[in-house]
Amino acid sequence: MKQEIIIAGFGGQGVLMMGKILAYSGLMDDKEVTWMPSYGPEQRGGTANVTVILSDDRISSPVLDAYDIVVALNQQSLDKFSQRVKPGGVLIYDTSGIHNLPERDDIKIIPIDAMEATFRIGHPKAYNMVVLGALLEAMDYKLPHENVLKGLQKSLPERHHHLIPLNSDAIEMGRNLLPK
């Protein structure tokens, strides 16, 4: 098993944290993991992306040019990374704000309305957890939910642990956004 994933969007959307929870969940499931962010003065508003690799074996490069799954949360990110989805791979994008789609028939393109789902939860900060739920559902490798919960626990500072049930619900809602 190896999943090579990039999550890209605006700084402030919780892209890095989402990647961290994914990586920690993988670690809790005994996988090798790397989490490689684009870093710099782009914490609010600029573009941010994170490459997460989950694998049974030792991981070579933390930096990639082709991905099994691309998660694009704004148009720039989609434009930048949609051509780098491996043939047979998956592109997940948020329908709010993304209107131009790539013309590729060799990959699976999954639209999700994560923004709308977040409004339904009534907690705007849960946005990235909704997206994470959709990503977890789209992955070939099925991460057991108990390990995702452990990943949440490890990633969030203790003062935010009371938010874990809310995050868990948001992930569940995200899972259900995928067409069955």
Binding site: L27, E32, V33, W35, M36, P37, Y39, P62
Partner: peptide, 10 residues
């Protein structure tokens, strides 16, 4: 370098 400083791993 910045890669190994900034990336997270097990």
């Amino acid at each position: 370098d910045g890669i190994v400083g900034q990336m997270m791993e097990k």
